[in-house]
């Protein structure tokens, strides 16, 4: 390293400023996410809820970018190294899209062709508070009725 002493000091200052900046960004994004979460609790409009959820996902991706790029220093690595890591991760675009699509399609198919599955989504259950036994029993019952539906 051919850095002089003052060069090193300037570099240190820069690095510390970067750490401070990213810490603030991560904290602020988290607080915004939480505020959106609290706001969403009493929300009835499906469209608005979806928009808020979309915003939360964007904030989540931004936080992930800041952690990987600055805390893990990926941004300061050689471009070829960055590409060997980022390009394989592009597989997630298909992974997420295909599987969520598949899950959605499966629900629609079952609602169309499995009357029992659809009926289960309309029967309200009495809420059992507190007791351990009741909760366990209820879980067991649910498991039993869920089993035949999955055989299709």
């Amino acid at each position: 390293m051919s850095h002089s002493h003052t060069d090193q000091e300037a570099h240190n200052k820069e690095a510390m400023a970067e750490i401070k900046k990213v810490t603030i960004i991560l904290s602020v994004f988290t607080v915004i996410e939480l505020l959106l979460g609290f706001w969403m609790m009493g929300m009835t409009s499906v469209g608005l809820k979806l928009a808020v959820k979309g915003t939360i996902v964007i904030l989540m991706m931004a936080k992930a970018f800041y952690i990987v790029a600055y805390f893990m220093h990926l941004k300061h690595e050689v471009k070829n190294l960055i590409m060997t890591i980022v390009v394989p991760l592009m597989l997630f675009l298909w992974f997420i899209g295909a599987f969520l699509w598949d899950g959605n399609s499966f629900r629609n198919l079952r609602n169309d062709y499995d009357p029992y599955f659809k009926e289960q989504a309309t029967i309200k259950v009495e809420k059992k508070e507190g007791e351990h036994g009741a909760a366990k029993q209820e879980a067991a019952e649910v498991k039993e009725i869920a089993a035949p539906a999955e055989k299709h």
């Binding site: 989504a121 366990k136 209820e138 879980a139 649910v142």
Partner: peptide
Amino acid sequence: HSEGAWWGMNPFLNADGTASST
């Protein structure tokens, strides 16, 4: 766990009040 939640046990109902799976 003390509320009855664990692998294979779900004491919580769905948000709309219907029975939930595990």
